[in-house]
Design a protein around this nucleic acid. Structure first.
Length: 500
RNA sequence: GGUGCCGUAGCCAAGCGGUUAGGCAAUGGUUUGCAAAACCAUCACACACCGGUUCGAAUCCGGUCGGCACCUCCA
C-alpha cells in the first residue's frame, strides 16, 4: 500500500498504513436528511467512493461506514413547516439520497447507521463522559466540558482562548448554562415550550434528543471500534463537528479515535461555497435532469478533492436552469470514453494478431493510474492518465482499421484491462456503452425538440442515396441534418448519428 | 479580530527545487466520395507582484495586492 493521504490532524500528506494489516476502517459523515442532496453532498460521496475503491483495488478489505443523521433540529423544523412526521420526512429524504447516490456509481457503504437506531450507544457514551467528569448535566441538557479535554482544538489547530474570543458575541439562554462558550450539547432536554410530536427519548437526564456531534462518535465507535483508520467528510465539518467528535470520543475511550482525518473541499457557486444556508445550491436531481449522473461524477474528478470546485450554469430567459457547461464537458468526455470502449469491443477477429508484442505504454497504464491515486487521490492526474490511454487505444484502433492493419491480442487485452481498472478504481465507464450513448442522444434530442424518428427517417433516405451513388442528394440530406445539429458518422458498418 | 487556503498560458486544471501533465476552445494536417469521429501538430520556454535563499525557484523564505473559507447551522 503506497497510498499517501492528507491528514488534517497533522496538516501533512502522509503514508497510509492500516492499523490492522490488510484491513481498513473508513467512516464518512453522511447527510442530515431534511432535504434533497445537493451537488456538494455528492462530492463527498464521490471522493470517498474513490478512496474506498482505491483501497480495495490495492488489496485491502475495507469496512466502509457512512451514517445518516435522521434526527436533528433541522429535520424537526422542516417537518413542522411541511406538516409531516419528522421520522417520515427523514425516511423520505434518506430514500431519495440513496437513489441519487446510486446513480453516481458509488459503492454502497457496508454499514449505513442511523441516529435513531443508536440511542442506546449515545446514552451510554454520555453517561460515560459524565462519569469521567468530561460532561455535566444542567436542567435536562448535558454539555461536554471542553476544558476537561486537553487535546481540544488539535484537529482544527485552534486554541481554546481564540475560540472564546470568537464565541463571545453570542448570547442566549443556552450560553448561560455552559461553563465555557465552546462547550457543546451532548443531550438536549425537551424544552417546556416544545411542540407536540417533537421526537424525544427517555434518558437519565430527562426526555430529550442527542446533540449534533454525539451521534457520529457513538456510531463510528460502535461499527469500527474506539480507534480506526480514516474518518472523512466535508471541510466545513473540521470545526466544530469533527473537533467535538474527537473530544467526546477520546475523552471517553482514552484512545485516538481516527488516525487519519480526510476532508474534501467545497463546490463553489460564484466563488462562494455552495450551501443550504446561502440558498445557492443545486440539487443532484436538478443536475440529473440536464446531464447524465455519471457526468457529474466525472466533473468531480476535474479538481483535486481538497480544492474548491467551481460550478457554472446556464439559464433560459425565464431564469430556469438549462444546463451546467462543465458537467456537459464531462459528459462529452464520457461519450469519448464509451465510444472508445465500443471500438475495441468491435474489432473484427481477422484484425487481431494473436502473436505480436504488447504495447508497453498501454500495458503500464493500470499501474500509472494507481500511482496517481496513491498521491493523495490526485484525480485530475488520474484523468490525464485516462486521456493518454484513450488516445493510444484510439490510435491502435485507427491502425487496426487501416488497410491490412492489425492490433495484437496482447495489446487488445491490456487495453481492456486498463478500462476495467478505470471502472474499478475511478468508478467511470461502468455503464453499458451503447445504453449510455443512446441515453445522452435521446435527452439532447428531447431538450432541443428534435424527433429521433424523424432523424432516423432522413438517415434512411440518405443511405439510399449513397447506395445509388447520388452523392449530391446524400450531401443535401447531410447538410439539412447538420443544420439541425445532427452529426453523421459514416463507417463501413453503416451510418450512426449523434448530437454533439 | 483569530486561524487557514488559493492566485499556472484564451478558459479549466495537475505539478510544488532541475526533465512536454492533462482537458476544453482555436488553427493547420492525416484519414474520408464529401463529412463527422479518431489521430498528429501548433497555441505552450505559462506560473499575481516585489525582494531574498540557491549552481538552479511556478515550486523554499519574507513582504505586497487580489479572492475564498472556518471561528454560528453547514458536505
Amino acid at each position: 500500500m503506497a497510498l499517501r493521504l492528507h491528514n488534517t490532524l497533522t496538516d501533512r500528506v502522509e503514508p497510509f498504513t492500516p492499523s490492522e494489516p490488510g484491513h481498513a476502517g473508513v467512516y464518512v459523515c453522511g447527510p442530515t436528511v431534511y432535504d434533497y442532496a445537493h451537488i456538494g453532498h455528492m462530492r463527498v460521496n464521490v471522493v470517498y467512493d474513490v478512496l474506498v475503491r482505491h483501497l480495495r483495488e490495492s488489496g485491502l478489505s475495507v469496512k466502509y461506514v457512512r451514517n445518516v443523521t435522521d434526527i436533528d433540529d433541522k429535520i424537526i423544523k422542516r417537518a413542522a413547516e411541511v406538516g409531516e412526521d419528522p421520522a417520515a420526512l427523514a425516511r423520505r429524504f434518506t430514500d431519495a439520497y440513496t437513489e441519487d447516490t446510486a446513480k453516481l456509481f458509488c459503492v454502497p457503504p457496508d454499514v449505513e447507521p442511523k441516529v435513531t437506531e443508536h440511542l442506546d450507544e449515545i446514552r451510554a457514551l454520555v453517561t460515560r463522559l459524565i462519569e469521567k467528569k468530561a460532561a455535566y448535566a444542567v436542567d435536562g441538557d448535558v454539555y461536554f466540558d471542553v476544558q476537561a479535554f486537553a487535546g481540544y482544538g488539535k484537529l482544527s489547530h485552534r486554541k481554546l482562548d481564540d475560540l472564546e474570543a470568537g464565541a463571545s458575541g453570542r448570547v442566549g439562554e443556552e450560553e448561560k448554562k455552559k461553563r465555557h462558550p465552546a462547550d457543546f450539547a451532548l443531550w438536549k432536554g425537551v424544552k417546556a415550550d416544545a411542540k407536540a410530536g417533537e421526537p424525544s427519548w427517555p434518558s437519565p437526564w430527562g426526555a430529550g434528543r442527542p446533540g449534533w456531534h454525539i451521534e457520529c462518535s457513538a456510531m463510528c465507535m460502535r461499527h469500527l471500534g474506539e480507534s480506526f483508520d480514516i474518518h472523512g467528510g466535508g471541510l466545513d465539518l473540521v470545526f466544530p463537528h469533527h473537533e467535538n467528535e474527537i473530544a467526546q470520543s477520546e475523552a471517553a475511550s482514552g484512545k485516538q479515535l481516527a488516525r487519519m482525518w480526510v476532508h474534501n473541499g467545497f463546490i463553489e457557486v460564484n466563488k462562494e461555497k455552495m450551501s443550504k444556508s446561502l440558498g445557492n445550491f443545486f440539487t443532484a436531481r436538478e443536475c440529473f435532469r440536464c446531464v447524465e449522473p455519471e457526468a457529474l461524477r466525472y466533473f468531480m474528478f476535474t479538481t483535486h478533492y481538497r480544492a474548491p470546485l467551481s460550478l457554472d450554469w446556464t439559464l433560459d430567459d425565464k431564469g430556469a436552469v438549462t444546463g451546467f457547461p462543465q458537467i456537459e464537458d464531462g459528459e462529452r468526455r464520457l461519450e469519448y470514453l464509451y465510444s472508445t470502449l465500443l471500438r475495441i469491443a468491435q474489432i473484427p477477429a481477422e484484425r487481431i494478431d494473436p502473436q505480436g508484442p504488447v504495447d508497453k505504454d498501454l500495458a503500464g497504464f493500470s499501474d500509472v493510474l494507481a500511482r496517481s491515486l496513491d498521491d493523495d487521490l490526485n484525480m485530475p492526474a488520474a484523468l490525464a492518465v485516462v486521456a493518454e490511454l484513450l488516445k493510444r487505444v484510439n490510435d491502435a484502433c485507427d491502425v487496426a482499421a487501416r488497410k491490412n492493419g492489425r492490433i495484437t491480442r496482447a495489446t487488445l487485452d491490456v487495453s481492456k484491462h486498463a478500462f476495467s481498472m478505470i471502472g474499478r478504481r475511478l468508478g467511470i465507464g461502468l455503464d453499458d456503452a451503447r445504453a449510455f450513448l443512446r441515453r445522452v442522444r435521446s435527452r439532447r434530442a428531447a431538450a432541443r425538440g428534435l424527433a429521433e424518428s424523424d432523424v432516423e427517417a432522413r438517415l434512411v433516405a440518405r443511405i439510399e442515396a449513397r447506395k445509388s451513388r447520388d452523392f449530391a442528394r446524400a450531401d443535401a440530406i447531410r447538410n439539412e441534418l447538420v443544420a439541425r445539429g445532427v452529426e453523421l458518422m459514416d463507417s463501413p458498418e453503416g451510418t450512426d448519428w449523434r448530437l454533439p
